[in-house]
Simulated assay, not measured.
Amino acid sequence: MSAAFASFDTPLPVTLELHGVRLEPLGPHHADGLRAAASDGQLWQLRVTSVPEPHEVDAYIFKAIEQRPTRLAFAVIDVGSGAVIGTTSYHDIVPAIARLEIGYTWYAQRWQRTHVNTTCKLLLLTHAFETLGAALVGWRTDNYNFASQAAIERLGAKKDGVLRHHALRRDGTVRDTVMYSMAAGEWPEARAHLRYQLARHGVR
């Protein structure tokens, strides 16, 4: 391993909490909550995401656990009610170059366009850069998922490019994948902006 990345720590299961949102390692005990979250808006019908149908949730969770250590999946919990409101992951973790990506992210419809996504990203990015020692964090999304692209850009991530004919969608079509990233040196400004966004919406 290059000495430059010797300080990077492979992500281990951890619980993170801020502003009434808790991220905890995804496990089988979250299955019923995750089914309810996916059913809020029937999110599996969205063409440009990969939200599991209710009968697929147990396999979805098993696969996420099976992918460790290259993926670490979290259940997103509303602290006030204890309800599972979605999920997110570190994935494509490459310790040799201190790189990881954030993805597999979705929330119940009622929690979309709230402080939840910004809070989750602040938690995950803070942990990635300040605890794990990541050199770079990446994102990828469907070329037609314009809402996701806008959300990633609001974080301060830079668009790296498009991988054409890259991955299958659930409907059998092949998507282009839009790639984004944020380097460690860009994190302080991005962190300040995320905190500003939350404060503007009354979250402190």
Rank of each mutant, 00 (worst) to 15 (best):
C120K: 03
L100Q: 10
E186T: 02
V21Q: 07
V116E: 07
V162S: 10
D92N: 15
W44R: 08
A37L: 06
D142Q: 05
W44F: 06
W187R: 10
T88W: 10
E101R: 11
A38Y: 11
V51Y: 06
R71G: 11
P54V: 00
F5V: 04
D92Y: 04
G20D: 13
L168S: 13
I93C: 10
N145V: 03
K159M: 07
R169M: 13
T49M: 14
V14Q: 09
G103Q: 09
E101Q: 11
P52H: 10
V48K: 03
F74M: 02
D78I: 01
W111E: 08
R140F: 10
F129D: 07
D78V: 05
D142F: 05
W187P: 08
A128V: 04
L34E: 01
D142K: 04
A151F: 03
S39N: 10
V178F: 04
H19N: 15
W106H: 14
A135F: 09
L163H: 12
W106P: 09
S50G: 13
H115T: 01
M179S: 08
I97E: 14
L72D: 00
R110P: 05
L198M: 14
V203T: 08
E189Y: 04
A128G: 15
A96T: 03
L46F: 08
T15G: 15
R200P: 01
M182W: 06
A108L: 08
Y60W: 12
S50H: 13
I61W: 08
T49A: 15
S181A: 14
S89R: 02
P188V: 05
F74C: 01
E56K: 07
G133K: 00
S181G: 11
R195E: 15
V79C: 15
D9W: 05
D160V: 07
R175F: 08
I93N: 05
V137A: 02
V94H: 13
G103D: 03
L46R: 09
T173W: 09
D58R: 14
H55V: 05
I93G: 04
A64R: 13
L72S: 04
P54Y: 08
H115F: 05
P13I: 05
V51H: 12
E189V: 10
S7I: 01
L198H: 06
W187I: 06
T118I: 03
R169H: 04
F8Q: 00
P54L: 01
P11F: 07
I97K: 04
A151T: 01
Q112A: 11
P69R: 11
L136C: 14
G133S: 12
A98E: 02
I152N: 07
R175L: 13
P25H: 11
V48G: 06
D9A: 15
Y107I: 00
Q45H: 14
A59S: 15
L194K: 05
T87L: 11
T131D: 14
A6D: 14
P54A: 08
G103A: 06
R204H: 11
V84S: 03
P11Q: 13
V14Y: 01
P11R: 12
I61V: 12
F146D: 09
A98S: 02
S2G: 00
G156D: 05
D176T: 02
Y144N: 06
R195F: 00
G86H: 03
V84P: 00
V174N: 09
G138F: 02
T88S: 15
E53D: 11
L123I: 03
P52R: 10
W44T: 09
M182E: 07
G202T: 02
R110C: 15
R35G: 02
G80Y: 00
A157W: 02
A75I: 02
Q197K: 09
M182F: 02
